[in-house]
Every structure is written in structure tokens, then in C-alpha cells.
Nucleic acid binder design. Structure first.
Lengths: 197, 197, 197, 197
DNA sequence: TATGAATGAGAATTCATTCAT
DNA sequence: GATGAATGAATTCTCATTCAT
């Protein structure tokens, strides 16, 4: 059985994810977790602390998943495809609670009172992992010779852009995840054939 | 000289853009515009109405700019490059007030009480314009044969992803706009040469 | 007619005086003043600011009264008697609201969050005035040769001690004010007669 | 070694003395005593009960000390001097925890929920003892013929006034205790010499 | 004894909105 | 058009108290 502390964390991920930091109330969280609201402060202190705890918990799970996905015997381009696949799978599995990560992210406007520096640090892990893959791909010739930093940021932007489209907009976007992976692949893939032409 | 009404609208774009709908107060807007807070309701009614007015004003300016940028004698791929260039130029020109569009957008979580349907309708213009370019490019062979809907959404996601990276994150991202245009170009560009190989 | 702002100030003096800073609620003040509690913050900001405003208003009135009482053509001892008489009269006239001064005073424990330094500065006026009288009395031989600083503080302590006894305790203390003036007089009075003995 | 119960009592004297009844929390007391907050209620019941216990413990120690100080072979005036000396010595010895007595006293505003009648009864001991000394002094001609009740209350006010000045205010008050004793002595002392004049 | 999880009443504060001037 | 006095709903946070272990 889940402890009440865990229940609060999950409820916070849901509530903040759906309604945002300002709109979701501590009472909302307590009601979802089926505990008294006093218990929320008891365990997590202020609303901001709870928000960070909820966001970082989700980020840590995703980071673990992404690291798992890129550690096999893959070349750089495969690494990136695997990273993207893992990312998209994770969002699908946590549709209800994933949006907390879209909110508690340096790519979103930080809610007032939330420590943006701490969040940016946490998220740099996501970018670093991508940079590693891009560098690897350039070394092993699976990826064109591109600027590593910018490319990693663009790929991350691609991923999050599609996640936003899928989770937040009403636009029909069946298959957007698959197409995004192809889109990135086409853009990065080295074409040694042309040399031979 | 700016009318007070205009001053309020600009102040609202700044305030909502920087602080978000919930956090920015009507008084914040009034102070920035150097008017009494009573005048804000006098002209714009409720806070939600003001938010929509501020967001739509910015959206309309951008739409005009984008339509301008794609109406010359361009092929589909050039159209998209021109669209992206115009989009990025616009964000640079309005760095201070542009973020209202990131907030008042279906790609963001709608703030409570804001009419998401109206916003989604307004923003479909951005996507429709891109779809037009993609279709054109497929017809004129400047763009590969790709699913139009998904591709347009992915490109839009790419654009907004890079704007977010540039405007919101602390990550170093010099030249990300130029790289994003190249990234999209590489991915879309048809390669008839390979046929000839 | 009293303005609502004045009504709030008076209500605050009553409420804080009777119940103390921590115990009196902003709502208590609003109810006594017959205004909405929102108006209290509107005019006075935080509870602490209101407390200081209420205390300083009372202090300023008393200071004016005391300065009035000591400015005639009096010798030092008469000055002190006049000061004490004015002080006691003032407390009698404001029995209901005077206790705010016992609370908002460096001779009391400062309530948390209240700026003790500001309060101590304000109250130094009371002590300075007494020191002036004592010095005068020593010069004009109406008062013994006593240490000025300590004597002034002791007299002030005498005054406030008797006010506390009268306003706060259940002990029967008819005539304590008159006796206190005599008590101080006997202690300070120079006795040149003894020289002649 | 101190028992945990004693530790709680001392911690309560410190915490209530420094922060006041309303501001000090049960948790504050528990932390100072290095026990869990549950143990505080376990031993002392409610917060009010603890406050009274803490105040009365201090009062009882002081009463014992004062009775000790006045029981020798002294005339009335000496009795009072001895009482004052003992009082001041006691406050010096317990600077950290003495302020609880300034708070838990009928000469202060009773905190809400604290039984003012019980406190007034306890404190009447202090006044009764002084009255005894004054009466004695009038009988033995060491003290002028003064109203006993008022004089005792004024002396007590003198004592507490100086303690407040010393413990609470930032005003420089070196030697105020010694001067206070002299001040009271000058005021009370009978001057039979004048008769002879 | 001793702990701390759990509760919920209560307070301060913020702020959109209305409306008289 | 323009101001800001006035209101009160809503939210966060604190904390005494209870109780199971």
C-alpha cells in the first residue's frame, strides 16, 4: 500500500500538472490524496517546496529511464532515437501526471517563488545526455558535423514541442511522436553516399 | 503619443508575459501603464478579457508578419524558411512582450478561466499557414512526401521550442534560431539527386 | 464625522490595547471600526504596520501633551510634577485606548515582527523630556544632585508602574497616581533646610 | 541530571519569557528541551497549563527568596531594602528565564486563555509581603506615615519598572537597581531630625 | 515514557471587482 | 474619461491537540 506521503506526492503531480502551480491549491492536493491539508505541510513544508518535490520526483524517474535507454551498444544516432523513444513512451505511460514536468521546467516560465536555478540545474541532465549522444554520433560518423550544444537543445525542443502538442493542444496529432523521431533522424543523419556520388 | 488604452494593452503584454496570468495582478498592469487600476476594467472588463486581448493583439501582429513573409514568389521550402525567419525576427523585436504569446497559446496550459477554445481557434491560423507551405512544397517537389498535418505541427513545435529555449532558459543558445532553420530545412528538403545516382 | 481611516486607527488602539498584538485579529479591528477587513490593509498595510501606526498615534498625542505641560515658568521639580500629572490625566482620559502604549513600548516585550528599534527611538522622547526636567532641577537646586539618566528612567518606571497597576491589576489602588507623584517628589526634593539646621 | 520534565519547564520559562505566550509554540519549547512535542502535553497538558506552571515555578522560587530576605532582625525600612536587593539579585541570576514572570503577572496584560484570577492570587503574595514591611516600618518609625496599600503597590511598581528597563529596553541603565533602592529609601525614610529642628 | 503522524480550526493577506464621485 | 474607496471570497500557513504505536 502507498504511504500517505507518496499519495500526496502523486496527487501534487496530478494537480500541479493539470492546473499549474498558481491555480492548484494545497487543498486540491490534499483532497486528491485523501488526507487533511495539514499533512501536506507536515511532510513537504510550503507549496513551493511541494511543487519542486513533485517535479523533481518525476524528473528523476525520467532521467533513470533515459539513461537506461542509451546505455546499450548503440551508435550516436541510434542513441538519440532510443532516447526519444524512451521519452515519448514515458510521457504516454504517465499522461496524467507527466505535465508537472512541463511546468516544473526551465523551458517553461518559472512560477513565482519557485527556485529557477535549482530547476535549471536538474534539467541540465537531460541536455547533457543528449549532448553526449550527439558527440558520440559525430565521432562514429552516424551524425553530421553539427554544433553539439545547439543541436542538443534543438532536439530537446523538438521532443518537448511534440509532447506539448500531444498533451496540451486540441490539434489532431496522431503519430506525431513517430514522425518527430523520423524528423530528427533525417536532419541529423550523415549521408556518406553523397560522397560516393 | 500613446493613448492610455494602448498603454494598458502593452503593459498587460509585459506583465502577463513576464509573470503569467495568475501571478500578474490588475494593479501590476495599471502601475506599468501609469494609470489607475479602475481604468483597466473600464476599458477591458475582466482580467481574463484583458489577457485574451493582450494575447490576441500580439498574435494578430505576428500573423500579419508571417503572411507578409510567405506571400512572395517562393517555393514551399523557401516559404517555410521565410516563415521561420519572420517568426524568429518577430520574437527578437518584441523580447519584452513576446512571452505573452507563449502563455496565451494552446501549446501551453491554459490558465483557468481563459477560454481555451477561442485561443485554439486563433492559433490554428499559425498551423494552417504552415500546412499551406508544406503542401506547396510537396507539390513543387522542394519538400519530401511527408504527412502534412504532423509535419506542420512538428515544425511549429520546433519553432516554439527554440523560442522557449532562447527566451526562457539559462542555457547558452547563441545561434539556435539559425540552426533551427537549417535543422528543419535538412529534414524537409527533397533530395532528387539521390534518384540520379 | 470621523473618516473610516480614523475609525480604524481608534479601533486598532482599542483592540491591540485590550487584547495585545498577537491576540487581537485584524478582523477584530475591522468589526470594531465597522468596516470590511479589506479596508484595513488598504489603508494600513500589514498588521504590524497598523500596530505601529496605532501606537505612534497615541504616543504623539501624549508627547504633545507632556511638552505642553512642562513649558511654563516652572522649576525642575515642578516640571516633573507637571509632567507626571499630565501623564496620569492623559491615561485617565483614554482609559479605553491608552493600553496600546503599554504594549507598543520598549518597556514591554516587543511583539514579534514589530520593529523594536523604531519604537525605542520614538519613546526616547519621553525619557529625554524627563532628563531635561531633572537637569533643570539640579541646576535650580529644586532637585538633589542625582545621576540624571538613571533618575529619569526610574521616574518613568514609576509612572508606568503605577499606570499598569491602575489599568491592569485587580488590586485596589485608589489614589495611586496622587501618591506616586508625592513619592517621586519626596525622593527628589532637595532639602536646603537641613543645611540651615 | 535533569529529568525531561524539568527540562521542559525550564525550556518553557525561556521560550515564554522571550517570545510570549502567543508567539512561543509548544514545538519551540520541545525543541529547546530536546524532547518530542508530544511529551510536553503528556506532562503538562495544555499550553495554558504549561504557561502557568512555568510562571508559578519562577514565582515560587522568588517568593521563597524574598521571604528569606526579610525574616532577619530588621526594621521596616531595612526590610524593604533587603526585599528589593533580593528581588534584583534574583532577576540578575535568572536573566534568561526571569522574563516569564514579567509576562505571567497581573501587572502585565494577561494572555488570552490564561486564568488571570489565579495569577493575581499568586502575585498578591509579593504585595502582601511589602505591605507587611511598610506597616512594620511605620510602627517602628523607620518609615513615614504613608498609606500602606498604595505605598506597597508603588514600591512594587518601582521594582518592576526598573527590572523592565534593565531587561527589556535598550536604554543605558547601569546602576539602575542600586539607584532604585536609594530612590525608594529617600522617599520612605522618616526624618525625625526635622522634628528636632 | 516517548514519539510523531494526522487533523482542522483560525489568521493574515491578496486581489478582482464594483461603484460613487 | 479617470480615480481609488470599499468589499469579501479565496488561499496559504501555522499550530494546539489527539491518538496509535
Amino acid at each position: 500500500m502507498m504511504t500517505k506521503k507518496e499519495a500526496i506526492l502523486r496527487a501534487a503531480q496530478e494537480a500541479f500538472g493539470q492546473m499549474g502551480f498558481s491555480t492548484a491549491t494545497v487543498k486540491d492536493v490534499a483532497v486528491r490524496a485523501d488526507v487533511s491539508f495539514g499533512l501536506v505541510s507536515h511532510y513537504f513544508g510550503s507549496k513551493q517546496d511541494l511543487f519542486i518535490a513533485a517535479g523533481f520526483d518525476m524528473a528523476d524517474r525520467l532521467i533513470a529511464r533515459l539513461e537506461e535507454s542509451t546505455k546499450g551498444d548503440l551508435n550516436g544516432l541510434e542513441c538519440i532515437e532510443s532516447y526519444m523513444t524512451a521519452y515519448f513512451d514515458f510521457t504516454e505511460e504517465h499522461r496524467k501526471r507527466f505535465p508537472i514536468l512541463l511546468r516544473c521546467s526551465p523551458f517553461s516560465h518559472m512560477e513565482p517563488g519557485v527556485d529557477g536555478v535549482k530547476v535549471a540545474e536538474k534539467f541540465s541532465t537531460f541536455i547533457e545526455e543528449l549532448k553526449r549522444c550527439v558527440s558520440l554520433g559525430i565521432s562514429d560518423d552516424s551524425i553530421r558535423d553539427l554544433p553539439v550544444e545547439e543541436t542538443a537543445l534543438i532536439i530537446y525542443g523538438n521532443i518537448v514541442g511534440s509532447v506539448r502538442t500531444s498533451l496540451l493542444t486540441p490539434y489532431k496529432s496522431e503519430g506525431i511522436f513517430k514522425e518527430t523521431i523520423k524528423h530528427v533522424g533525417r536532419s541529423l543523419k550523415n549521408s556518406p553516399a553523397q560522397v560516393g556520388c
